[in-house]
Design a protein around this nucleic acid. Structure first.
Lengths: 166, 166
DNA sequence: TAAGATTGACGGCTCAATCTTC
DNA sequence: GAAGATTGAGCCGTCAATCTTA
C-alpha cells in the first residue's frame, strides 16, 4: 500500500481498501473459512494417518458405512456421502478391500449395483480411529465454541449445503 | 434407522442417536462444515475453470500476488498463504509461468530466494477471474448471511486458524 | 548446519470412455 | 437409451532427497 493513500481516507477509499464494502465482508469470511477448514483437515488427516494408517478419506468412508444399517451401502450413495466421484470411490474401496476393512457384495435386486460392506476388522479399526478423530475434532474445533455456537455453525453450514439425509 | 427405535426414546437412546451428547454436537457441526466447504469449493473451482481456465489453486496464488506490494512475493511466503507445500507451489508456479501469468525473479538480498512476480497479463486475467469469484461467493455464500453473521463466521474461523497477517 | 527452492517418485483424484444391466 | 460401476489417461499434490547459498 503506497503512502499516498494514508493522506486522506474517504468512503470511496475505504471501499477500495475493503474496510467498508459489504462484499468484502463476505470475502473475508469466506477466506477465513477456507483457512480454517484447510487447517483442520490437515491436522486431522495427519493424525489419523499417523495413529491408524488411515487417511481422512478412508476414515470418512468407513464412518459412513459404520453408521449405515448392516454396515453396508451402495457404491453410488457412498460416493455422494463421502464427497467423492464414483471412480474415486471405486479406487478407494479397492484399497480398503485389499486391507480387509470392507468387502464388495453384489446387490440382490439390481445386478448393476454393488454394496460396500464393512468387515468385522474394518469395524474395529474404525472404532479405534474414531477415538482419535473425536480427540482431534474436540481439541481443535468443538472445544473452542459454546454449544450455542456449534448449533449456529451447523445451521449456517446447512444454508450452504443442505443436508440430504437426517 | 430401524422402526424399533421409535417406540421409546430415553435419555440414553437420545445420546446413542446423537441428539443429546455434547460431543456429538461438535461432530455434527464439523461434518456440516466439511460438506459446506466441499460444496462451495467445487462450485467455485468448476466455475473459475469453465470461465477462465483457472483452477481455484491458481486463482488463489494470483490473488495473493495481486494484493501484495509490487505484485510479487517470496515463494515460501506464497506457499504458506496459498496453503500449499513448497514443492506444490513450485509446480503450480511452473504452470502459471508457462502461461505467462507470472514470472520468477531472483532475490537481490538472498540469492537462495526467488520471487514470483505477477505479469501485466496475469493481473488482467486475475481481475477478470475475480469478478467470477465474487459472483459465485456472493450467490452461494455471502448472500445467505447477514453482515452480522458474516462477521461472526469470520471470527469463529479465526479461532480455528488464527490469521497470521492482517 | 540451516533455509529456500527444486526434482523424482508416487499417491489419489477426476474426466471421459467402456461394460453391464435395467 | 439410462444408470451403476469400473478402467485408462492424465493432472495435481505430497514426501523425501538434492542442490545452492547464508
Amino acid at each position: 500500500m503506497s503512502t499516498a493513500t494514508v493522506v486522506k481516507i474517504s468512503a470511496g477509499q475505504q471501499e477500495a481498501q475493503g474496510l467498508g464494502d459489504p462484499s468484502e465482508l463476505g470475502q473475508q469470511a469466506w477466506r477465513a473459512l477456507l483457512r480454517a477448514q484447510a487447517c483442520m483437515a490437515k491436522r486431522l488427516d495427519a493424525e489419523l494417518e499417523r495413529a491408524h494408517r488411515l487417511p481422512m478419506s478412508s476414515f470418512e468412508v468407513l464412518h459412513h458405512l459404520a453408521r449405515s444399517p448392516g454396515g453396508r451401502m451402495r457404491m453410488c450413495d457412498l460416493a455422494e456421502q463421502a464427497q467423492l466421484s464414483r471412480s474415486g470411490l471405486t479406487r478407494l474401496v479397492d484399497r480398503l478391500e485389499r486391507e480387509g476393512l470392507l468387502e464388495r457384495c453384489s446387490c440382490q435386486h439390481d445386478a448393476r449395483g454393488a454394496y460396500a460392506c464393512l468387515t468385522a476388522g474394518g469395524r474395529i479399526r474404525m472404532e479405534e480411529a474414531r477415538r482419535t478423530q473425536l480427540t482431534v475434532v474436540t481439541e481443535h474445533f468443538s472445544s473452542r465454541f459454546s454449544a450455542q455456537e456449534l448449533s449456529e455453525l451447523a445451521a449456517m453450514a446447512e444454508r450452504i449445503a443442505p443436508c440430504s439425509g437426517a
